[in-house]
Design a protein around this nucleic acid. Structure first.
Lengths: 255, 255
DNA sequence: CGTTAGATGTCGGTT
DNA sequence: AACCGACGTCTAACG
């Protein structure tokens, strides 16, 4: 790990250029700069940010993050794929992150640098996430009564001419039933999506499954004779864990 | 700025607890830990992440970020509002971030700590962004010919029973025209939204304005007699800058 | 508070 | 490469 505190501009430039060389070579170092800077962005939109103290991260995959002392999202950033470049501009250190597609550039000019840091971050682990919409779909497919008594599922994730829908099958009477699944509160958008699927079919029913359904969405569903059902994740999560364990999906106990 | 390299667990714990005290008191220090850790999350969903080297940031507003060496998004996180706590667990440093609403918790257990860092990030600057959908709407309102020759805009951002639409007015023949605006490529969803607005009205036309319109969206628009127009941001951005400058919106030149 | 719609969304999958 | 939809989306605005 390389570390420099309160470097002057020339020292910082040397450090950054050396580190960027290593970063490009795939040695996988993360580069960090803390200091007083101003930022400009031009690309899908454009922005300027006047002087202030920020934390800047450059990842070996070409990700740039500029964080202030608040909020989860960076104030400025560049997604993976950017090329970094450091230079001196009128005595100040200028750091650019250029991304060709879409063409966009973030430029940081440092008025003062408090800290330079370069360190490796080796990580072979994958995130094991439980509770995605896909999980929910799977559980509903395996436990169709959670959708509706007598529901017989047939397919998941079918492409239809009007778009995708999540699940379909036959209800207790043998009538076609389209199921729209949402892992969080369902809004008008999801209700509209279901409506769109169902109206394009002949005499099919539609049902929206979500932990909660927003008032406007309910109104829309009701006015188009669509059903909905709220379910509790607390009822679902154990089933997913059980399924994963049974299926040897390799979710180890965390400890 | 406080900095410790390769601390043992007890040193790290003391550092973290001291720093967290300051962080809670509103002194506004950002706390950073680099090291080998495992992470678990439980809340809106749940996840586990086995050992690996990561960069952990704790912001004074209660934001937690856990970054690996790739991607723009953190592998785990907590949005603003979390309460941090540090403790020893079987000789290892455990850091938790608890958020009451929605109730969720991230727990990090460090097997090894390479770096501890606490530093202030003072920042009074606001991001000046050009190119939002709101900007686009405003420009279309002020330059209605960009929508369609002879268009006379009347209202922006009206709430309708079917949702919101962006702009409406009268076309050259006096017929009502609903305008849907998107700052990026418009897809089926946006076309669908416009269709829903327009079909609920009597003899109104609809037009979708976006930098590009996806094929499926075009098909849907065409089949429902809706119009669309692709516009170039390069044509719009200068107008916005001009408008802002004229309107004294205070977007200074960056330099 | 909850609800809603925008975002430089980011990201992964599929055509 | 473009298109499409999920996301622990996050975030600001509004009722």
């Amino acid at each position: 790990m390389h570390l420099v505190r309160d470097p002057d501009a020339e020292t910082a430039l040397t450090f950054l250029q050396e580190s960027l060389k290593g970063l490009q070579d795939g040695r996988g170092q993360v580069l960090q700069v803390v200091g007083d800077c101003r930022v400009s962005y031009q690309g899908r939109a454009q922005s300027t940010l006047l002087r202030g103290e920020r934390l800047v991260l450059l990842k070996p995959d070409g990700t740039l993050l500029i964080h202030t002392s608040a909020k989860a999202k960076p104030i400025n950033w560049q997604p993976p794929g950017a090329q970094f470049h450091a230079a001196l501009e009128e005595g100040e250190v200028a750091l650019t992150a250029y991304r060709p597609k879409p063409e966009e550039m973030v430029k940081i000019v440092f008025h003062r640098i408090d800290l330079l840091l370069a360190f490796p971050l080796h990580d072979a682990a994958d995130l094991a996430l439980i509770g995605s919409e896909d999980d929910l779909q799977r559980i509903l497919f395996e436990n169709p009564d959670l959708v509706e008594a007598g529901f017989v599922p047939q397919r998941r994730e079918r492409d239809s001419k009007r778009g995708f829908y999540d699940l379909d099958g036959r209800d207790a009477t043998g009538r076609r039933l389209i199921v729209e699944v949402k892992r969080t509160t369902a809004g008008v958008q999801e209700a509209q999506q279901l409506w769109r699927y169902v109206e394009g079919l002949d005499s099919a029913r539609g049902i929206l499954i979500a932990p909660s359904v927003a008032p406007k969405a309910r109104a829309l569903l009701a006015s188009h004779n669509l059903s909905w059902k709220e379910l509790d994740w607390n009822e679902i999560l154990p089933r997913i864990e059980h399924m994963r364990r049974g299926g040897q999906t390799g979710l180890e106990r965390y400890g």
